[in-house]
């Protein structure tokens, strides 16, 4: 993206984006825990995760990472296509 910022502005922006990245990773991690816990843990007759629950969580994390990767690729492509379309319209 052409941001039209000076070098000093870019540096300031970089710092803010790093903060944002940390925040987004924390959200992503939190959503992953929520999602996999909700889907996999339903037995409260003991206080330790059962073998079944452990396996489910492990598969859930793997699948969620693949989902994240795949959707990230699609998002990048679609976003690029949309940006091109919009800048063609604006010219």
């Amino acid at each position: 993206m052409d941001t039209g910022l000076t070098a000093a502005e870019s540096r300031e922006l970089d710092q803010r984006l790093q903060k944002r990245q940390v925040k987004e990773f924390m959200n992503l991690f939190g959503n992953l825990v929520d999602n996999c816990f909700t889907a996999c843990v339903d037995d409260f007759t003991s206080k330790a995760l059962s073998g079944r629950e452990n396996g489910c969580i492990s598969r859930c994390v793997m699948k969620s990472m693949s989902t994240q990767t795949r959707l990230g690729e699609r998002f990048g492509e679609l976003n690029a296509a949309m940006s091109n379309e919009l800048s063609n319209k604006n010219i």
Partner: peptide
């Protein structure tokens, strides 16, 4: 609630470790 809290912590730690490895 007590067991859910314990399982939530265990899941949290487990997922955090797996995420780092993967």
């Amino acid at each position: 609630l007590d067991r859910c809290a314990a399982k939530f912590f265990e899941s949290h730690q487990k997922i955090s470790e797996q995420l780092q490895k993967e």
